[in-house]
Amino acid sequence: MFILKRQDVEISSIQHPKRDQQVPILNYQGQTFRLISVFKASQEEEARTLWRELTDNRGKACVLLEEPDRFSVWGKIRLDQIGNDTGSHSKNIIYVQGCLLLLQAVYLDIEELLGTRQATLFEKEIAELLQKQQFPGTTSLESVKHLVTTNALDLAKLPLWPENHLIILLQELHKLGKTYFGNANFAHQVTDTLQDMPEEERSLFMSWLNQSSLSKLWQ
C-alpha cells in the first residue's frame, strides 16, 4: 500500500486495554497502523517480501517504513479494534496447527532418511530462524525440541504466532527442506501430512495456504 520514510509519519504508543503493554501506533494522513514486524537494515528484501505478501496476495492495508537502521511493516487498524485483536484467534490457531504439522513432517523425514545428526542440525537452524524473526515464546533450542515433538492437535499447547510469522516460517521451512533433501518433493504431500486434522479445520488451513504466495511452494 505505502512505502514511507520516517519523516512521513508520526509514531506513538497507546496502552493496550486488556494487557499490561504499550502498543506502537503509526499515523499517516489520518490513518492508523499497528506494528506487525521489524527487520534489520540488512533484511530489506525480507521486509519487502512480507510487505508484498500481505498487500498483494492477502489484500491487507500495510505500510513499509524505511528507516536508516531498520525496516518495519505496519498493518492498518482502527484504535477501537486494539482491544479485540483476538477476534480471529480460533482461525489463527488452526493456521498454527497446520504449520506445525508441516514442520514436524519435515523434521521426521530428515530424522528417518538422513539420520539423527542431520535432524539435530535442522533443530538448530529452526531455532536460529525463530529467534532471528522474534517468534513469541521460542527463544531456545529446547523450545524448538518441544515444538517438533508436541502433539499439534492439542490446541492448548500451541504457540500464539501471528499470521505474518507463519508465512515467514513456511517460506524458510521450504528453503531448508530443499537444502536437506535436494528437491522440493517433500512440499507436495501437504494433504497427507494434514490427514489427522479434522476435515473442517484442514479445509480452512488449505484455503489459507492456497490464497497466499505459499501455494507456489506447498502443493
Rank of each mutant, 00 (worst) to 15 (best):
S37E: 13
I110M: 04
S42L: 11
H174P: 08
E142D: 15
M197F: 06
R78L: 11
D85Q: 13
G177T: 04
L35P: 02
H89M: 11
L155T: 15
R52D: 09
R70I: 06
R6Q: 14
W208R: 01
G98V: 00
L153P: 00
P162F: 05
W51C: 07
N151K: 09
E112M: 11
I94A: 01
L209N: 00
Q43L: 15
I77D: 07
K132F: 11
N151Q: 09
E123N: 11
S212Q: 06
M197V: 03
Q104F: 03
D69S: 14
L141D: 04
L102D: 01
L170C: 06
S212W: 02
S90C: 08
G59E: 07
S215E: 11
L113K: 15
L214G: 00
K216E: 13
F71Q: 02
A187T: 04
F186H: 02
L103C: 04
I36P: 04
E10L: 11
F186K: 01
I94W: 01
I126M: 08
L108R: 13
L101E: 03
L158R: 02
S37G: 10
R52Y: 09
K175E: 13
L194F: 05
S37P: 07
L129P: 04
A61H: 07
I126N: 01
L100D: 02
P159E: 11
G98E: 01
L217S: 05
N151V: 08
A47D: 03
I168T: 03
F186Y: 05
Y107C: 01
L4S: 03
L26N: 00
G98L: 01
E53Y: 03
W51S: 05
K60T: 08
K5Q: 11
Q43A: 15
K132P: 05
W208P: 00
E128L: 13
E66C: 09
L204V: 11
I77Q: 10
S203T: 10
F71M: 05
